[in-house]
Design a protein around this nucleic acid. Sequence first.
DNA 1: TTATTTGATTTGTGATCACACTTGCATTGA
DNA 2: TCAATGCAAGTGTGATCACAAATCAAATAA
Lengths: 244, 244
Amino acid sequence: MQKATAEKSDPIAAQLAPVGRETVQDRVYLELRRALIGGLFEPSQVLTIRGLADALMTSTMPVREALGRLITEKALEALPNRSVRVPPITLERMDDLLRARTLIEGEAIALAATRMTSRQIATIEAMLGEWDEMRALKHKKDVDREVTLNQAFHFEIYRACGSAVLIPMIESLWLQSGPCIRVAIYAFSDAGEVDTAHYHRTIVKAIAAQDAKEARDALVADISRPFAFLRSKLEAEAKEGMSV
Amino acid sequence: MQKATAEKSDPIAAQLAPVGRETVQDRVYLELRRALIGGLFEPSQVLTIRGLADALMTSTMPVREALGRLITEKALEALPNRSVRVPPITLERMDDLLRARTLIEGEAIALAATRMTSRQIATIEAMLGEWDEMRALKHKKDVDREVTLNQAFHFEIYRACGSAVLIPMIESLWLQSGPCIRVAIYAFSDAGEVDTAHYHRTIVKAIAAQDAKEARDALVADISRPFAFLRSKLEAEAKEGMSV
DNA sequence: TTATTTGATTTGTGATCACACTTGCATTGA
DNA sequence: TCAATGCAAGTGTGATCACAAATCAAATAA
């Protein structure tokens, strides 16, 4: 019995879960992904291989490969100096990202709206409740939790679209817009919280009714908001920079 | 004068082109990309780091990093055995890829249709002529050249859409559908050539007229064809497999 | 003959090292 | 005082090695 595959005849194997063998590189990659989507790095911040390796308590090898992967999906940027940084925010890039996100995530939610099972719908409804719960005790604004919950809500829907091609593209888009979004949420967290829950409720309602068009519209409104916030902030800063 | 930046005041610097410093890893990555889009690897083929390193005449280091990057953009697939292969063809994946491509490339060409300068339009018109030229001496069917020219034509248009976010996504989609397309072209190269030129002419005409909708429709028809070919081939094989 | 086991080879992963380039700072010169 | 020079620390890249896991083939047992 040298085989690695679990055999039904083995009564012990049936009780054991496969232990999995994820590599250090994968852990580093996923950790950096999490940090980027969560906005833990700020735009234009420069990252060094050895610095990250120290922080993550590994050698440079897994880090450099993870950085390379993040650069190819445009989550990070390779400077001509060969140093790498998280891409800076510009108005053009924001608009570009928003257009791509409405296009692709809109398509994904339209597909999901006609495919989600009642069980899946129940899951995102439960998330709605979790959201209200968090908002109830809003004495401390827990931006991290807010971001995480928002991500979980959206991807629970996207997963249901059934497209193995669209979902990675959406993840890439979130990776790219993560740093921007965090800046927007920080700047407008008070104004943002209320509306987010409202839009999410609209989305759930539309999906429950299997109304693809309504779901898409609600989603577009949801993801457009932080971009609009950020845009107004950037424009204000630009104007201020002019006058000073 | 230690500075690396070219200075206008220096009469010598004005005549020298920057030498550039692309890494071995980049060359390996681009070479593998080219091979994948061109369909030089066949679906389900397994690739080894040391094998590629020998073929490319480098050490394993640049190759493994390039493979990692290609895996993150789904151009290659990491098996649980930790070996990597080019993804196999399935009907579901084909439909998935086609849907994503019509969605995103359709949007890109619609944007390009309203933005292309007369100079850019002249460029793709010239490509049309090149296509006819190649078809004129079709005694030997040069599939490589056909694939290359087709790619150049499409990306000349996509580049004009002005979206730094959409273009890399399109490249990723071509990377993923490259192996499938090559199989389709090989199987139906005789039937394919004529129509390709026709659709490309329609596309150019629509763009020249700045008709975004017509351009999108023509593009969708163009990229749907090889997928439809491949689909009929796969279905035929599946039926054959049933009866045998 | 067929199934299992054993051993040799191949393969991916991570660590370490050498080298070249960049960057920052102190020193030197006008 | 200010710019240019030179040195030192830091950083990315590629090569090589050690190790564990996987694969394949021959040998053995049923």
